[in-house]
Amino acid sequence: MDFRVDEAQRELAGGIRSMLEGRLPLERIRSSEGAPRTVGADDWAALGETGVFALTLPEPAGTGLGLADAAVVFEELGRSLVPGPLVGTFLAAARDLVPGAAAGRAMVGVCAGRGGPPWMLEHLSSLDAALCPGDLPSGGPTLLSAVRDAPTAQRVAEPLDPLTPLWQLTRLPAAQPLEDPEWRLFSDGAVLTAALQVGHAARTLELAVAYAKERHQFSKPIGSFQAVKHLCADMLVRAEVARAAVHAAACLADAPDVLAAEATTAGSTPAAFLRRSAAGAKLLADEAAIANARAAIQVHGGMGYTWEVPLHLHLKRSHVLATSFGAKGELAALLGSLPAGARAEP
């Protein structure tokens, strides 16, 4: 067993990071704040060309990598605040559900498909389709085609995240059921969304630590005060614990033999055990992203409460991501309802 992030994965992450720094630097991303379309077709195609959506597709269409590699890439996408329906497009591409998704020539959203009406859909005017992963815990995923033309869709004026334009729908468009007996749409989607959240948690930690080193009060860097240090230490703990959970769930998704063995030890089935691992990872990553953004805002003081620094964007995006693939209460209830005998080893 070697559960470290390996050399190839570090290189993959580094490659994505430099691509994003060149193509989608923060200023460029922020220039579309409040717009109905926050990621251009060119930029989306550039992500597609880099292979972001086709990582797990076999060559030559994709790169033949695993979900663990995708998790490493999605952490980078989260860290850099890349807008757009990243997870939905990846899931659709990996299953060949929507033409052009793998190449970044189509955008596929995610519709929580519960709680409405009104249903809330992100990036609607850019979407070619949307996935409904299905309600927890029973499943029942569907694909909503022609979602862009949904007759009742109305754009909201004040979306929480200025980089995630949002529509409300009083009626969902026609849905086509998807075969997904092992809840893989949910599990994979939860893992990738959690990976984005880990990226947010890691980035706000970096920003908080950098600020705590440079900002002086009482003639000292504020990072020399224990109260500030401990905020930062707790941020690291949350990010590292969540990252380990995300990577473990992704590795299980990649290795059916390991998953089967672990599920047997836990008295569970592979599909249920993977769903448990994914749900736990998502729960902890959501918490880490939101709590770290809040802590980073606290470390930045009044400046953290403004649009002068990007912390509010991380906080708001984390809240957006926390609503898909299981909200906190749903995930916790799912995990709490597992058979009592189930053991913890992922």
């Binding site: 470290r4 380990a244 995930l331 995990l335």
Partner: peptide, 27 residues
């Protein structure tokens, strides 16, 4: 029930972190 579920997620994650730590130490 949700608190039970949250602890299950946390202990699963700490088991994963243990595997990461021993991998690091082994290598």
């Amino acid at each position: 029930l949700e608190r039970i579920g949250h602890l299950r997620a946390a202990f699963d994650a700490l088991w994963a972190l243990t595997k990461r730590n021993v991998s690091e130490a082994t290598q």
